[in-house]
Nucleic acid binder design. Structure first.
Length: 383
RNA sequence: GGCGACGUGGCGGAAUGGUUUACGCAGCGGCCUGCAAAGCCGUUUAUCCGAGUUCGAUUCUCGGCGUCGCCUCCA
């Protein structure tokens, strides 16, 4: 039985049947401000998936980019009076420390957008050569009218997308654009922003292009699974797919997987709202394994709300699991049952419930916990 | 407006086509205590509304109502 996962584009749970080598691309962070529990949540779920795929005998090649060339980063650097790459490096390091503490497996590569400018230029050249983009005054726009599949991941109609763009003042009436939904692949930089030379004029990449360029560079034309948070479905992934398929003429992604948002105070936890919980702050009080458990006690497709009882509850859970170490009892059937839960659209809440019960019964749950990335081989530690 | 998620006791949150609907917090009673706290034992309270399918629905279907999210800063 292959693992089954929900595919955003197909809108149903389908078998996920990659070859021996699985290529995965997850959209990483823009390191301009504190990375928080919501980010950690997204990547911990991909880590659980990666672990299960390895457990099934696959080799996994997962790429997770870092968007260190983008508007919010420049704005924040301007505000703080620091170089944008210094700001990015600090936040990226913080994120990496969090992921390491949470015992996420290392990704195959974590390329920065700033390292990919030449790839991006080459990629834009491919899109232009194939007639899917046009140049206006040093800006390169993607021509959405050439991409009839635009909207098939998010399931928005063209009319809807146009209406939204107009409503939101998303510059749909920019006279340079042929179609209101056309988006930027390259554009001139503001005076205090970084700028790179290009055949069509100096400037910097648009938001979506780096992921397409990096996915092609690191993983090839068609990747097995692509994901990120649900907030990236539209427009980011829609645009990525359009430009990638324009550039290569091949399908971009076989399976789209998105992780739901973490909320706090009834709203999405987000940098702009400031309603944040930080992993490094939690680590001052709790073992990182408790934090991982606190994340995966939820299902990845269901939004959830941070609340104060989460950590005490999962601290207790970790202690109960640790208490089972060395106990007798056969763990083989438990391990199989946990694997079965994961193969059913990554049912981590179900897996945790099985392990809770087994620990209570006095079965050593070490192997089952390991499948979820929870190592019971050491005592509780904090800080 | 479109799309999506969700509506279980005072709160959070599981589970299920069928005798007694988990668990945690709070509440209540008791044990303990000089008094209290903690701890322990016991215990009260629930499936948004309507229609349908069914011998039987909280669970499945349809329609309402409500909450939330997304809709070019976003994991």
């Amino acid at each position: 039985m292959p693992i089954r996962l929900y595919d955003t584009a197909r809108r149903e749970v389908v078998p996920f049947e990659p070859g021996p080598l699985v290529t995965m691309y997850t959209c990483g962070i823009t390191p301009y401000d504190a990375t928080h529990l919501g980010h950690a949540s997204t990547f911990v779920f991909y880590d659980v998936l990666q672990r299960r795929l390895i457990d099934l005998g696959h080799q996994v090649r997962c790429v997770r980019n870092v968007t260190d060339v983008d508007d919010p980063l420049f704005a924040k650097a301007r505000e703080l009076g620091v170089h944008y790459l210094d700001l990015a490096a600090g936040e990226e390091a913080r994120f990496n420390r969090d992921m390491e503490a949470l015992e996420a497996l290392p990704v195959h590569s974590a390329p920065r957008a700033s390292s990919a400018i030449s790839d991006i230029r080459g990629f834009i050249g491919m899109v232009l050569d194939r007639g899917y983009a046009y140049v206006v005054d040093g800006s390169v726009f993607f021509d959405v009218s050439k991409s009839p599949g635009f909207g098939e991941i998010s399931h928005y109609t063209n009319e809807q997308m146009v209406a939204f763009a107009r409503e939101r003042g998303g510059n749909p009436d920019d006279p340079a654009k042929r179609n209101p939904l056309d988006f930027v692949l390259w554009h001139p930089s503001a005076p205090d922003e970084p700028s790179w030379d290009a055949m069509w004029g100096p400037g910097r990449p648009g938001w979506h292009i780096e992921c397409s360029a990096l996915a092609l560079r690191e993983l090839g034309t068609t990747i097995d699974l692509h994901g990120g948070g649900t907030d990236l479905i539209f427009p980011h992934h829609e645009c990525e797919r359009a430009q990638s398929e324009a550039a290569t003429g091949e399908p971009f992604v076989r399976h789209w997987m998105h992780v739901a948002m973490v909320h706090m105070d009834g709203e999405k936890m987000s940098k702009s709202l400031g309603n944040l919980v930080f992993v490094d702050k939690l680590r001052e009080t709790y073992d990182p394994r408790s934090i991982r458990l606190g994340i995966i006690e939820h299902h990845y497709r269901r939004e959830w709300e941070w609340d104060e009882s989460l950590m005490p509850r999962n601290h207790a859970r970790l202690l109960a699991w640790l208490g089972s170490v060395g106990a007798g009892g056969s763990a083989t059937s438990l391990l199989d049952a946990v694997r079965e839960r994961l193969d059913d659209d990554l049912d981590t809440p179900g897996a945790l419930a099985l392990i809770d019960e087994a620990a209570k019964r006095g079965t050593d749950v070490t192997p089952a916990a390991a499948v979820l990335g929870v190592n019971l081989g050491r005592p509780v530690s904090v800080g």
